[in-house]
Amino acid sequence: MIAIKNISKTFRQEKKVFKALDDVSLEIEQGDIVGIIGFSGAGKSTLIRSVNLLEKPDEGQIIVNGKDLAKLSSSELAKERKKIGMIFQHFNLLSSRTVFDNVALPLELDNAGKAEISKKVNELLKVVGLEDKANEYPKSLSGGQKQRVAIARALANDPYLLLCDEATSALDPVTTQSILQLLKDINQRLGITILLITHEMDVIKAICNHVAVIDKGRLVVKGSLEEVLSDREHPIIKQFSISKTVNIPQSISSTLKREPEAGLFPLVEVELNGNILFEKLLSVIYSDYKIPYKLITADVEYLGKASFGKLLLHLQGSPVENEKAIRYFNKNNIQNTIKGYA
């Protein structure tokens, strides 16, 4: 439905030349949620702004529903833009307008009638759960509420595509999750395709079906979420997906010994890469090998039928039994490290 074909963009500032996009191609299917992840300066913002031509690529095409956007006249382009909603990191609400009037802006641009505007705006405010804030000014809203207003505004023209330019980067984690849920909901209920850019893997994991990784202006990996996440060898993905190091609780770390000793049991950090389910792993240890264990910490996420994350296991079987478990991990390509003995 949306095809980004071989686009390139170079910025020139005085004597510096900066290639923001280098031969980028991406196809986005109707109804999909596609995430582009990259570090700052990787070109992701330029890429998403190219889709509605806020940034004109030097080369390449943006084909939306069969139309090459770059070939349209400015009034035709304006018409196409109305069907592509966009939300931003800093919300970009008009401070001079109330919540209601902010959402009404796109409709006013189309010279819609008062009754029509009022009906549509109230509907949209209900979708984002802000009916009671209609007459407030943006300055009295929280960040999450502001982004909800921006989402309502972006939906006012019944777009088929929603572009999210770091939409949750200025929000706290809890608010981020609620905004992502709202986006997912909008995608499912209204069938709106979503293209988002972010520098946070959690955002990608939370809602995207397809992912592309951008680095130095090039898309280095593309694929479904599971495909991309399981490609741990790729240096860029590695940097994004290394989950926070697992902390060993103080009560254990204080008595942790480097070398095995009689009466001490190994503390093993296990990394799940999607090749074994979390439950399966535990049941193998407990039911198949009959090794008693203590699960110290687990930071595990489910993506489809795969588990990703890290856990800290305190194996409490005999040395021979524990060795068996480690051998099982190695045989099945489950990364593990013995952190010490306690």
């Binding site: 509605n52 806020l54 833009r81 970009n92 008009l94 802006l105």
Partner: peptide, 29 residues
């Protein structure tokens, strides 16, 4: 007036006159 507001209006399909009337002047009032 923050540049992001003009950009937003452009993304909403507003032309220069609409941007001036609906965004620039009210925000700069």
């Amino acid at each position: 007036v923050p540049a992001g507001l003009v950009e937003t209006a452009r993304a909403l399909g507003a032309g220069p006159i609409q941007v001036t009337r609906k965004v620039l002047l009210p925000e700069a009032l």
